[in-house]
Amino acid sequence: MRIDCKHVWQHISAYIDSEVDAELRADIDRHLETCEICSAVLDSTRNIVVLIADDRVFELPAGFSQRLHARLDKELQLAEP
């Protein structure tokens, strides 16, 4: 089946997560072969998903873990065994 750009955009997230069925995937792939706009939309979306997942984007504040466990230590000592 021929599908249009809007139809492709609706499924971009599911396509990236491999959650579209084989038939829809084939339709999308066929569309992407000839549509440079949808290819660029897909590539940019996928690129952004990869970048934001990088550990360097959301780091725990420096010393976060030490402070958390120091506070827990105090709490654990207070608690009844």
Binding site: E36, S39, D43, S44, I48, L51, D54, R56
Partner: peptide, 28 residues
């Protein structure tokens, strides 16, 4: 409005680009 940013080509931004602090800040 969920129309994407319309582009006709995309040059991959590699993960190494995250060495630039502005990129992380932009994403956050």
């Amino acid at each position: 409005d969920y129309t994407p940013a319309i582009l006709t080509s995309w040059r991959e931004v590699p993960s190494e680009a995250l060495e630039r602090k502005e990129l992380g800040a932009l994403l956050r």
